[in-house]
Design a protein around this nucleic acid. Sequence first.
DNA 1: CTGCCCTCCTGAGTGC
DNA 2: TGCACTCAGGAGGGCA
Length: 295
Amino acid sequence: MPELPEVETVRRGLEPWLAGARIDKVTLNRADLRFPFPEGLKDALEGQTVTHVGRRAKYLLLSLSGGKTLLSHLGMTGSWRFAEHGIDKPPRYYEPGTEPKHDHMVWEIAHPRHGKSHLIYADPRRFGFIDLFERPEDSPFLRGLGPEPLGNDFSAAEMAEKFAGKKTPIKSALLDQRVVAGLGNIYVAEALHRAHILPTILAGKLVTARGKPKQALDELAIAVREVLIEAIEVGGSTLRDFRNAEGGSGYFQHRFAVYDREGQACPTPLCTGIIARIVQSGRSTFYCPVCQKRP
DNA sequence: CTGCCCTCCTGAGTGC
DNA sequence: TGCACTCAGGAGGGCA
């Protein structure tokens, strides 16, 4: 589920309560998610203080006082949230017989100002995963990631270098985390619509013979940034599962121009198009056949 | 190397 | 109401 805006929303929800908190106790309710939990995870976490709550692409990065970093990927249905309960009491739904079956990891934490609470990682489909490392270069998940789309290294010129000669459709190219890190199916569709680019056009067609970005690619870089910033401002998108750390929904789904809007009118001013859905490399692509024609 | 396709898993939604 | 079936926001790995 969660793409960059959703992970950033989770990060912002966790930060005020988690940064500075000490992890007193870790309960693992199973041995794995998508991958086995890192060896010695419980011992590595207990007694540590979380010094920083960060994010890289779709990864949540919790820095620990001992120098290690915990990496959390939410897969499609992963969530971090604080249990609703009073200080020093167990979460309500850990009363006997009411344990939710998808709460795979529970932390008891103590914050110098906010007191004690429980932080729960839940993930029904278990596509999420956890990693623990000393240095970022030690984690295979961070290696090879492209630039942060909201950072200084991301630009049309940078994309043009990667796209030159590329025969993959622009939709698939943007989903490749080595090109730009943090986009998923939703925000790729929205960004392509804003830049009026046809999702099936080959990525190489957006680059001039001299290897420079065509105007459409310039506008795509801008559109990617805009759509992500707007989505973060309203707490990401909730289609089914996504919840922030307080258990609330995002609101960006109400602003979708194309995603999940097959058969509806294109919102581009003066455009008469009807949103279409096609399948590209096994994933749904939504676009407007009338105003998205550019290479 | 590149570009596909499959897969992991559960739950929600749909149609009969 | 029940049941079978399809589909879903990710991404590693395997294949041609």
